[in-house]
Nucleic acid binder design. Sequence first.
RNA 1: GCGGAAGUGGUGAAAUGGCAAACACACUAGCCUUAGGAGCUAGCGCCGCAAGGCUUGCGGGUUCAAGUCCCGCCUUCCGCACCA
Length: 833
Amino acid sequence: MAEDKEQRYDPATIEARWQQRWAADPALYAAEAAKTSKPKYYVAEMLPYPSGALHMGHVRNYSIGDALARHMWMRGYNVLHPMGWDAFGLPAENAALKNNTPPREWTLNNVAAMKRQMQRLGLSYDWATEVTTCLPEYYRWNQWFFLRMYEKGLVYRKKSKVNWCPECATVLANEQVIDGKCWRHEDTQVEMRDLEQWFFRITAYAQELLDGLDKLEGWPEKVRTMQRNWIGRSEGTEVDFGVEGRSEKIRVFTTRVDTIFGATSVQLAPEYPLVKALAADDAALAAQVAKLIDEQKRAREAGDVAAIEKHGVPTGHFALNPYNGEQVPIWIANYVLMDYGTGAIMSVPAHDERDFEFAKKYAIPIKRVIAPADPKAEEPELPFTTEDGVLVNSGEFNGLSCADAQKKMQGVATRSVFGEAKVIFRLKDWGVSRQRYWGTPIPMIHCERDGLVPVPDDKLPVVLPAQVEITQTGGSPLSRDPDFVHVTCPKCGGPARRETDTMDTFVDSSWYFYRYTDAKNDRQPFDPARVGYWFPIDQYIGGVEHAILHLIYSRFWTRVMRDLGLVKNDEPAQRLFTQGMVIKDGAKMSKSKGNVVSPDDMVARYGADATRMYALFAAPPDRDLDWQEDGVAGVSRFLGRVWRLTTKHAPRARIGRGQASPNPEGTSLKLLRKLHQTTAKITQDFEGRWHFNTCVAAIMELVNELQAADAQLAAGQVPAPVLHELLRTLVLLLAPFAPFLAAELWEELGEAGAVLRAPWPKSDPGLAREDEIEIPVQINGKLITVIRVAAGADSKTMEAAALAQEKIRARIAGKTVMKVIVVPGKLVNVVVK
RNA sequence: GCGGAAGUGGUGAAAUGGCAAACACACUAGCCUUAGGAGCUAGCGCCGCAAGGCUUGCGGGUUCAAGUCCCGCCUUCCGCACCA
């Protein structure tokens, strides 16, 4: 029985052994801080939230990153491949409520469990650089950055309407509101509340964040586009309309100032300040406005703002167009947003679809002011929205093209001081206050005498107290801890109160990858020299769900640190890769659907190598992957074949170790050729295409050929040095994908030291080249037959060989050969008529 | 509505404009047996007994040659969306 067991590939035993050996050798995966002639390579996967267990999405993400890290090590790079924990956040508080476990304990237990899973998977992280964001050694630097940003005016406090999730009992950033719902609670309507909040002035970098996208060629176009849309730059003009009989002005924003002679009304958002004033002595209007606001609120909560019908109410007042003095009615409309532009628009029904719809409904005049550029063209139906036209009915501007008119009219507005050219952004400042316990305390103090006073640097960190009662009732839990709240003012020494809100957890993940380079530094967030060496990240890998939140915040944070003189790079990561989702039976894995596959289960049944390799084999990394357990079993069987083949022939291969190979021929040549072709293919893929699924397939093909030659190998027909090269290289090629098995077989082949330190094999083009190739022969582009010719055969030889074919001769008999297309090395196509 | 990606066997998929379906999974038949979640051999796009014909969402086009390039549709997924 025991004897039989040894004949079989047994991942459980192999992987347990190597896991132990690797754990005892922490230097194996440690990068050198610098002072090495090796080029640096920084690869990072997005850090996980320590929920308690890895899911398949993690496994896939880390399998991709680990294959790359291992490959780069073998290519001779100094590789930084770190891992950490995005450890603050709401689930810890929920768990505390549910199980009465302190958030810290719950979180750190989860970290330990997930770390074990990662080690079981054989992921090559340098644990000496591990970062856990909920520990004061880390979050004190969040506070430090907050204070630096406060000094630079990049942090401010304002009362504002905020998105409030009743379920989280806290404020959400705009980015965390999806269709009016909370990003964590798909079924919970987000409410609007008025609160004093801390903001990061990300809008100060709006233009730069936008411009930077053009240079991020190593990022997926999809992510860049999403960020462009999110930043939402819009060029236009602001123009003041006068209000008849009143001193106020209505400033509108428009991208089409060239159509302003067609403005037949001005539309205000229901919350627009002037509306309140107008409604003050008009009870009927006040009631209608209240109704509009209520409706808008409900539509927003239903998440279907765009679908509600446009309507509004006339105020009975009139606005004055500054260009022509024309009087137009002032309306209040439900489709005008207070938080975009100025909260007021000019309505040009002839040249805007929404305004058209509105004007039709309320019989507001429609005045055409743009005509087609081509005077012979037919008058298009309204609304006519293109900018490719000329102005009509527009006084002195008649005849100008839209573009020229915009420029000229902006000039007029500026000179007459009733307007100006203006660029606006959809991007809003980042609200970071959270009324939560499990987050970074905001290092500010409210003093009755001195107002807002920052916590001095030498009083950092403001430590999160351990014993705080967590309830679901809302408000900041920290405010219920008197020891935390009551402090003396650093300025006047008088009694004061601490800020009790904590920071959004996206603060933690905005700069964590910098901390990896110097994770134990207790004097600064990191040593700029170390960051200077490692940054930017060469390859960042994670899910596309972070395309805007995390990836825009961390781009912002990088620029802030740059302006603080801490880093030299503008962008955090040179290249970004977003892997596809792991799905099962066509749907995203979720507990409610009951289609969750546990990584632990897979590892227990098939081993870590098979699980990881399947995650790479089943689909190209950027596409969604449908998890099929049979597929994992298949990969496991394949690894078994590799194990048997290698262990069987290892004794003879070891004899050939270090000996020069004779000139190969026959089976040797055939196998070596395949070996060098495979090496070339995989090397190439790592350099750019990243189709690891075909890399695994290529290794399978190689093993299939070796196995087909098993009898010849057993009979000693392949010289020992060749056999050695074949098996040794096979193991090297396998190492990034199946590290446990590779380590095992490496030793089996008598090699000392880690596979990871062995140089990546080089493909010899001379050996990889075939000497005879198959050439398809077509007639009029249709495949008829295949010929074999020498690899270097010239066109003439190929043409002659093709035309000599019986099948070809039979088919062209009686027809005229127009021409013969010959692509050397590729095909012959006979064109006949 | 705007933007992005994708549509190929029973399934996951492969294919610098040059033999469509590599590599696997599943399935079928057979062998072996220490009866294993094992191994080996063969078959496996569709129609057809065969010869042969057909086949990459649909319709056009470019080309000696198109899954691949161009134009127009359809479908699915993802992101954004009364953004003035």
